[in-house]
């Protein structure tokens, strides 16, 4: 199992590249969402990745107005030694035209949760899948065993659980006549659970109450090809410490594991 990480800034990225990780994920400005650090595609050449694998994220839902720039970015990535995590099939369609489908990792936050769904994409030449965190360990391992896909899974980090195109924080603050000058926002449910919420250029995202952390399950996850450690919303030093713990396969107490050991209810009645 390989460990790949995202970073909160260029400086943070450099500190992570010093570690014994296998790769990094970089979100490309204007074509990705749900991250804390975005770079311009042209800046990739300036970075020394120290022989680590490089993944770029193009995980935005593309609208027509994004397509020209998407073409530009994909053409620039065509000859680079990077792989592309994507959500929208527009990325696939253009990548196919550019003969670069082999670079693609499908990454659809909450879709693509079965063996057959993954096989659908494999049948179209997409060989890698960043599988949703909405499934259990058994479901994940079955997908790995039976889909024929190279599998990525979130090992540590906040998972987005709601993504809207709307500016929900701005709209609310305007409605109650409050300044939108906060650096950090959260919402609290009536049961007192606090969820991080972010408004970005392309909309609003709500995240899990805590970072999902599967560090205590690394032995069971050994078959998974790539474990993703996401830094978004986590302090640099705290994140780096956890990365070290993953590298050293340490155990921790009180980890939050989302649905890893718990099924969601399909039928309510």
């Amino acid at each position: 199992m390989k460990l790949i990480v995202s970073a909160n800034s260029r400086k943070h990225l450099n500190s992570l590249l010093e570690k014994n990780i296998d790769g990094v994920i970089l979100s490309i400005d204007k074509l990705s969402v749900n991250d804390s650090f975005y770079i311009n595609v042209d800046d990739l050449v300036d970075l020394d990745f120290k022989d680590k694998e490089v993944f770029v994220s193009l995980n935005k839902l593309m609208h027509n107005g994004d397509l020209d720039y998407l073409r530009t970015v994909l053409s620039k990535l065509r000859d680079k030694c990077v792989r592309i995590m994507f959500y929208d099939m527009a990325v696939y369609n253009i990548a196919k035209e550019y003969d670069m489908v082999d670079k693609l990792v499908i990454c659809q936050d909450h879709l693509n949760a079965s063996v057959l769904s993954n096989k659908f994409y494999l049948n179209r030449g997409i060989k890698s899948s960043y599988v949703t965190s909405d499934i259990t360990k058994d479901e994940l391992l079955e997908i790995k065993d039976k889909s024929g896909m190279e599998i990525f899974f979130l090992g540590y980090g906040y998972a987005p659980i709601f993504y809207s195109r709307r500016y929900l924080i701005s709209n609310y603050l305007k409605y109650i006549d409050e300044n939108n000058d906060g650096k950090k926002y959260e919402i609290v449910s009536d049961t007192g659970v606090v969820y991080p919420i972010d408004e970005e250029k392309f909309g609003t995202t709500i995240y899990t109450e805590k970072p999902i952390n599967l560090i205590n399950y690394l032995d069971e996850l050994d078959k998974i090809d790539y474990l993703v450690l996401k830094s978004n919303k986590i302090d640099d030093s705290e994140f780096n410490k956890m990365v070290d713990k993953f590298i050293n396969r340490e155990h921790i107490d009180n980890e939050y594991i989302g649905f890893f050991n718990k099924k969601t209810i399909y039928k309510v009645k």
């Binding site: 936050d109 909450h110 909405d134 109450e209 399909y266 309510v268």
Partner: peptide, 21 residues
């Protein structure tokens, strides 16, 4: 939300939003 990109129900109620809950 964008349809398909919301699983608030899963995390708040354990009901699977993308499976009808």
């Amino acid at each position: 939300s964008y349809s398909g990109r919301c699983v608030l129900s899963n995390y708040f109620t354990n009901r699977d939003a993308n499976r009808g809950g």
